[in-house]
Design a protein around this nucleic acid. Structure first.
Lengths: 139, 139
DNA sequence: ACATCTTTGCAAATGATTTGCAAGTATAAA
DNA sequence: TTTATACTTGCAAATCATTTGCAAAGATGT
């Protein structure tokens, strides 16, 4: 729990701590679903943080393993926190409204599955995206 | 086999047949791996076909179910033929060179897997992408 | 062949993301 | 703590993939 505070995460990942980064990381940690750079910017612009800084932070955090990018068909990239409390999982993207949701854990031994898939290659990450209609758009 | 000829596919999908579309569809059918709009354009530009036309064809073919888009982290979209001979499968994208390859079929009952994943939602398609280093880049 | 609807090339517009740059901020050494 | 050096940031302009407006060319039904 404590270990997931923005402040601490920056420290343990050896990332230079700045007000902007701390603020942006907070925004990511507070979000239950993956957020686009634009959405994150909306959350932090009142503190004078530029969109370019959000993008630079996302790039950095991704390299540090603090966030994971999720790529939607629309061309948008969403970012979600990556920590013990939020292990890799599938995502659902609504083809109608573009909304994104995290799906529950797969419920079977997915690691074996991925290893099997990747046995021919040196796999570093997996992205599993389901597309369809979300409940709001279905009604 | 015969059924997979561009000419025929356009007919059975009720798509107005034009020289450009036939040429572009041929390029897709001939490719073993998913191709970007740019790559396809390189293959057909000598026939005076514009990049915009390639994009328009990809959009149309996707709607008709003739091709499937595959979205890479880089922001590029690749397109692959979609027919009985080429059922949905996972893709491998090299983080180093950006190259894309099709992986062998999963080797277990993936439909049950996807149904299980999508049981909470109305799922229309699935995209499974593994990332890492391809054999050329690994050496 | 005719009239109508569709498709295409070209150029300009978009929209997300990136980059150059000068000014502001962090870090380590003195 | 002051200083020198390296990193970060806001801003504006640049990129890059993809889309769109438009007038000309092509396809379809009569």
């Amino acid at each position: 729990m404590e270990k997931c505070k923005a402040d601490n995460l920056l420290k343990i990942t050896n990332t230079v701590k700045t007000e902007a980064r701390e603020t942006i990381l907070h925004a990511v940690l507070d979000s239950e679903r993956p957020m686009s750079a634009n959405e994150l910017h909306l959350m932090v612009k009142n503190r004078g943080i530029d969109l370019a800084t959000v993008y630079r932070a996302m790039k950095l955090f991704t390299e540090k393993g603090l966030v994971r990018p999720v790529h939607a068909d629309s061309g948008l990239t969403f970012y979600e926190k990556s920590c013990e409390h939020n292990p890799p999982h599938a995502h659902f993207i609504c083809e109608n409204c573009g909304g994104i949701e995290c799906l529950k854990p797969y419920g079977f031994d997915e690691s074996a599955f991925f290893i099997k898939l990747g046995q021919q290659k040196e796999v570093s990450s997996v992205e599993l995206i389901l597309k369809g209609r979300c409940s709001s758009c279905a009604s």
